[in-house]
Design a protein around this nucleic acid. Structure first.
Lengths: 252, 252
DNA sequence: CGCAACCTTGACACTTGTCAACACAAGTGG
DNA sequence: CCACTTGTGTTGACAAGTGTCAAGGTTGCG
């Protein structure tokens, strides 16, 4: 059984790329998966608001969550008490996979906006999967996708300098929106500088400086009176900016 | 159906921890999983040697691989040609999960040592899972474990300074060995400084300097005439070293 | 108005990368 | 046996990138 190629969303890499050329297709794909989940699993549906906790690290695991809408962050609490944003999740993503191995949730999942969460007991999911192979395919694909995405962000964080990380973040963000059929030229970050920096392994000052630099270079533009909404006039130029800098570093 | 807590191997974090207190239990757990896989799936078995390629990025996906012995690295090739080590895999780990979503392998998997690889067609695995729920549990746990492990290393790479990363790497390594029932006081890294640095997002010089510093502080000791084999006399002291530095950084 | 969040910018220090030189071991071929 | 090469590891000097600290600006809200 060969799976058809998914919209693997090679998000969060340095390669310059047009924003989601397969936008519609992938949005459809997500919609189809959600519809199948809705009909086969009849998940419990819940509307959440900014700040609502889906689960916390350490809680016993018994249910998985599928996001129908909204924006969510995954927070990992290190031993010394600092929080680290380890992922952002949107419509079509699953929450809770990381808890299967340990029996307890491995991080906090928190809504950053109004959204709808579907919840299914894990054992019910397993039973449904044994009856419906197409559901198994969707679950495995979602887990696999999460592995690929995490790996991509790992590479970005390991190898890219600060400004390239911020650019990669902007590309990732626009990609995620485009793939769900939303407009990408005018985007709202919905994260503070501190949260972006935390996610990217940078300080908030560095994020602010990079954004200012990009704005001075006309690669992005801030909305009037609101520096969280930004506009990306030319996607290709944004990626090329990073490429140029990397080439410069290589020179003597 | 509540899963029993697995040996989640919170490898690769900053928290000081004794090396694998549950060593035997976890080795047994891996052995049980392998036995189940062997009997239910009758995988094709193959002996590999250092440098052998299990798969390459871009090859079409149809089979998963389970490692019975040996050491393997996952290499991700970025757009501009640089290689990045994105993971190390040992006995009991699976290879190929990241290919499920995309239909093609997402990275290279290369043996670094003599070992034995078991290979199963993915569709055969799915069929077996539908008949044997306990196999599904093992597969899901392995995928979940991979997600957790990747996330842990992400945190380490994002938030830790260079010396803490190297210490975390040593702890991860000793943990991995201990969990499989091997001795941890005398370990062979089997990686060059360059490979360690690549994996940790550091240069080989930085890795070398950190190891020298640890050796000067008597936290590790090099083997005579072979600086790849190292000895860790006191595991707790190694972790405490990082904690102390972090506390120092916080002071004014 | 005052206050709290959030953002920006500058000066400075520190960590780490870059470049270079050298040491050492293993293999190769004269 | 000795040069020579290659791969690996160590160490130092220096520079670049980024974090830290501090000050001030803007927005929104009670």
């Amino acid at each position: 059984m060969q799976l058809q190629p998914a919209c693997t969303a090679s998000n969060f890499t340095a390669a310059p790329r047009q924003a989601a050329p397969e936008a519609g297709a992938c949005g459809q794909r997500i919609a189809d998966a959600l519809k199948l989940i809705a009909t086969l699993l009849e998940p419990q549906r819940r509307v959440v608001h900014a700040g609502d906790v889906i689960y916390r690290a350490g809680e016993p695991f018994s249910r998985l969550h599928i996001l129908n809408s909204g924006l969510f962050k995954l927070l990992s609490l290190s031993a010394d008490g600092r929080e680290q944003v380890v992922g952002l999740r949107l419509r079509g993503d699953w929450l809770g996979f990381s808890a299967i191995a340990g029996g307890v949730y491995a991080c906090d999942a928190i809504a950053m906006d109004t959204g709808e969460v579907w919840t299914v007991p894990y054992d019910a999911l397993l039973r449904a999967c044994s009856r419906h192979p197409e559901l198994t395919a969707i679950v495995h694909e979602a887990m696999s996708h999460e592995i690929v995405r995490d790996r991509d962000s790992l590479i970005a964080l390991c190898t890219l300098p600060a400004d390239a990380r911020v650019v990669a973040f902007l590309q990732f963000w626009a990609d995620s929106l485009a793939r769900r059929g939303l407009r990408t030229d005018q985007i709202s970050l919905r994260l503070t500088r501190a949260e972006i920096g935390n996610y990217l392994g940078l300080t908030l000052e560095t994020v602010s400086r990079v954004l200012s630099k990009l704005a001075r270079a006309r690669l992005i533009a801030f909305n009037e009176k609101n520096r969280r909404d930004i506009c990306i006039p030319d996607f290709h130029a944004l990626g090329a900016f990073v490429q140029r800098r990397e080439a410069g570093v290589g020179l003597h």
